[in-house]
Amino acid sequence: MSDSKTTITVWIFALTLLAGLLVLPQLLSYSQREIAVFLIINVLLVVSYRLMTLTGEWSLGHVVIMGVGAYASALFSKRLGVPVPLSMFLGASTAGLTAVVLSFPLFRMKGFYFLIGSFAAGEVIRLIWKYFTFPFGGAKGLNLIPSFPDIGWISFFDPVNYYYLCLIVVSVSLFILYRVERSRFGLTFHALHWQDKLAESVGVNTFRYRMLAFTLASFFAGLSGALYAHYIGTVNPTRFDVEEMVYVLIWAIVGGTATFYGPIVGVVALTIVNDVLLRALGFDTIRPMIYGAVLIASVLFMPDGLESIFPKLKRLMMGRKTEPATKSEAGEIP
């Protein structure tokens, strides 16, 4: 925590990364630029998901919460005429508020029961979208969602410009999430995960902290949903179904959830594999199969995720012997 050298390294790394990200769209084709937009949005989604997992609870409703942000932002702008930047914030807030409400039933459960409970809650929300044609548009969902307004001569219809917009929003969000984790909040979230009774005994209101983690995670998931909705212009219940949740799980688990960057590595690596390699090879149909195999393999052989490779590489480069496998954080919960 107090290690200032690590902090400096992190900053240097982050700035280099940012520079690379700024140049990136200039090097890509049009369709790859679109993929880059979605990738940035997904980074926010999976990093916000990780915040939730810090408390030890694995939700299966995170993508639905993203959908809440998307639907809410779309409805605020489309039906009520709220300006899009404001509606995005309101959408994210709606997602956060949904989490506050859901906390009351869901945090009576833990571990496996929470997993199932969050799944059920998510499915109920999806059924509500499906059932109520007004205002949610039923199974077809909403379309013609207003896009982000032009700023001067900058049109956000162009993926490159939208990419930069997302980059700004997501960078700020990640910074906030990072600060939260490095603060006492992060310590308390971890404490809830490993020993909630002990945390309680020194005065931690476990419900409130679980709710805080869930609400923050949901706010940013909702924001990612809003960014998505106003770019693609249409949302429907199927877009936020459990299949999509599975992808978030895969990103998080393949990357590893022990560190902040783990899930980012996961989503970037798998997006490159998925949208660059597989698409180029024409393997679109067998994509889920490869994902499935990767998922099984990573649970079996790489319980700490891709992130565990970096410390190993570092040790190798420094010429030290690799230590025996350390504790697996990603796999053993709940």
């Binding site: 925590m1 310590l187 490993w194 020993q195 009774k197």
Partner: peptide
């Protein structure tokens, strides 16, 4: 009963 994964100081800090 401790926060086993935490450092000693972080246990007490919590």
């Amino acid at each position: 009963t401790l926060f086993n994964e935490f450092s000693v100081i972080d246990n007490v800090r919590l």
